[in-house]
Design a protein around this nucleic acid. Structure first.
Lengths: 199, 199
DNA sequence: ACAAAAACATACACAATGTATGTAAATGAT
DNA sequence: ATCATTTACATACATTGTGTATGTTTTTGT
């Protein structure tokens, strides 16, 4: 009794199983402590399948991280759809980001292990293709048209750093509201300075 | 011909050799790609000596990270000795931090690998015992006496996050002056708000 | 139906980690 | 000064994981 499946279906299902198990183990035990034998065992395949679909363990992690970042971007986009002023858009986006990063494991995946495993430039690329792009857009609106590209980039980078640190702190048990208020104050000040360039 | 050395001297010299080689390899190749056989070979000892002085590879990394953080704290303290106002102290401290973090490898050690290998809470502990303590003190002065402890902590955490991100960007080739100016502006705004509490 | 390619599975070579055990040097007490 | 004890190492081993090479099955295209 053998059900005939297409090749793309086979690949998709095995990749999906591998990514799901890898994601859970990377979150539970971390990248270094997660062995490929354990991953394939729980996914119901062999190491041969893994190394057929992914170049190495790092590529598996990268796929997990990219999928997670894409999902986060979708959630942010859904939760911050309606916003009138640029400040509101920024604050809504920030709150949506915090809400998304509350899902267990995301902080560890994207803020702790990601930079160490894939490097900061690769993580920055992933971030820019997902959530970071919208943040930069919001910052650009907030700063006004007289802000140079480089200043927009730096400002967005610094604000993004605060967001990440806040998510990290909340993941460690800190009060979310306190960080949200602090960041909201900073963003408000930032935008009120629109006329005379802040940075 | 055998020179009689004290036990503490023997330990100190082997530990020093191990830490020096480990530091260089951790910086050059990263934590995961650095093997203990390579470390002990270049240090002129055996793995037995390593595992006698350090519990495991992670403990070796932690010792390297703590030594580096302590050295950075010393450099900051030396370079920001004289400051009149609290703002000046903050800006001087920030510039001293950037200058210290320009030394090759420190960004990778303390901002990339450290959080992944030792965990964020351990890195925060190390930071608080070295440079972070002075930053928090400066922030407290800048915010004034009416700021609550929790607000001081959060503000210092967020500012520290910006410092770290700036150091990371500069390590990747970004313009240091641009980030320094951006942070200086933000700090100025922060402190000008002393009367009506910012956070 | 048959060749080619894709999707796996199996087996192997290599390396690294941590530990257990053995040895030499230093310390402390008599 | 000697001897027991502890400290500082060195050696050997057991385990585990990574990546690759090779083999097998299933699908695809002609």
């Amino acid at each position: 009794m053998q059900e005939r499946r297409s090749n793309s279906n086979r690949s998709q299902e095995t990749c999906s199983a591998l990514l799901g198990v890898a994601r859970r183990l990377f979150i539970e035990k971390g990248y270094a402590a997660t062995g490929t034998p354990e991953v394939v065992e729980q996914a119901g395949v062999t190491r041969g399948a893994l190394y057929h679909h992914f170049k190495d363990k790092q590529a598996l992690f990268q796929a997990v991280a990219e999928a997670e970042a894409a999902q986060i971007a979708r959630e942010i986009e859904a939760n911050s759809a309606h916003a009138i002023t640029s400040v509101e858009a920024l604050v809504h986006g920030a709150n949506a980001y915090f809400e998304a990063m509350r899902k267990p494991g995301r902080v560890r995946l994207l803020l702790l292990e990601g930079p160490a495993v894939l490097g900061p430039e690769e993580m920055r690329r992933i971030d820019m293709e997902t959530g970071g792009r919208e943040l930069r857009h919001g910052i650009k609106d907030a700063l006004g048209e007289n802000a140079s590209t480089i200043k927009i980039d730096i400002c967005a980078d610094l604000v993004s750093a605060m967001f990440d640190r806040a998510a990290l702190a909340c993941d460690a048990g800190a009060d979310i509201k306190a960080y949200e208020n602090a960041i909201a104050s900073l963003l408000t000040i930032l935008v009120q300075r629109k006329s005379e360039p802040l940075l």
